Computed example of a mutant assay.
Amino acid sequence: MAVGAAAPALSRPGTAPLLRAEGITRHFTVSGTRIDVLHDCTFEVGRGEVVAIVGQSGSGKSTLLNVLGLLDRPSSGTYDFDGVDTTRLREGARSRLRGEGIGFVFQQFHLLERRTALANVGVPLVLAGVPALRRRARARELLESVGLEHRLHSRPHQLSGGEQQRVALARALSRDPALVLADEPTGALDAASSTMIMDQLLEQARVRDAAVIVVTHDPKVAERADRVIQLVEGRTR
Results as ranks from 00 to 15, higher is better:
M1C: 12
G4W: 04
G4A: 10
A9V: 07
L19V: 13
R20L: 09
E22M: 08
I24K: 04
T25L: 13
V30C: 08
S31H: 10
D36I: 13
H39T: 09
D40L: 07
D40H: 05
C41V: 11
T42I: 01
G46M: 02
V50N: 01
V50H: 02
S57D: 02
G60E: 01
G60V: 01
G60L: 01
L65M: 14
N66F: 10
L68R: 04
S75L: 05
Y79N: 13
F81E: 15
A93G: 12
S95L: 07
S95W: 03
G99P: 11
G101F: 05
G101E: 12
V105S: 00
F109V: 07
H110V: 08
R114T: 14
T116H: 15
A117L: 11
L118Q: 15
A119H: 14
V121R: 03
V123Y: 11
A128V: 07
P131F: 06
A132N: 10
R134Q: 12
R135E: 07
A137C: 04
R140G: 06
R140Y: 00
R151N: 12
G161P: 00
G161F: 01
A168Q: 01
L169V: 00
A172E: 12
L173Q: 12
S174E: 02
D176A: 06
D176I: 00
L179A: 11
T186F: 10
D190W: 12
A192S: 15
M198C: 10
L201T: 04
L201Q: 10
L201E: 04
L202E: 02
R206A: 12
R208P: 07
A211S: 10
V215L: 03
H217C: 00
A222H: 09
R227D: 04
V228I: 11
I229W: 11
L231A: 03
V232S: 15
R235G: 15
